[in-house]
Amino acid sequence: MDVFLEYLKAFLVGGAFCLVGQLLIDLTKLTPARILVSYVVAGVVLGGLGVYQPLIEFAGGGATVPLTGFGSLLAKGVREAVDKDGLLGAFTGGLNACAAGITAAVFFGFLAALCFKSGSKINEK
């Protein structure tokens, strides 16, 4: 039962993040790139204010998988690095913390480009 509740929380919180994104798409004319940027910056701000960590503890993947989680990870990395190395940490912490994600995106993007061709998007019935 606990496991079910855990997944339900991840589903609901993650879904809610996407719902807000969809509202932004439908009601404002924000382009996808702008929404992605807003989410990451919002994540940095919320993470910096210490609001996001409790949400991660509550919802797990529901809070880490959306791009706000990426932002909060940046904030967390910077905070820990500043604690350790002082001001230098402001410049090293962010990329360190999200190195796995960015490197994976670049590397798998490169691999995918080697393996696949761009789609025809033929408008099928």
Binding site: G14, G15, F17, C18, L19, V20, G21, Q22, L24, I25, P32, A33, I35, L36, Y39, V65, P66, L67, G69, F70, G101, A104, A105, V106, F108, G109, F110, A112, A113, F116, K117, S118
Partner: peptide
């Protein structure tokens, strides 16, 4: 179908990186 449901998660970020890589290979 997904709209923001596929945009906002980290998979949407990956899609935004991978798709131009594939497309501009030409």
């Amino acid at each position: 179908h997904g709209g923001a449901g596929t945009l906002v998660p980290i998979t949407g970020f990956a899609n935004a990186v991978v798709s131009p890589a594939i497309d501009f290979k030409s």
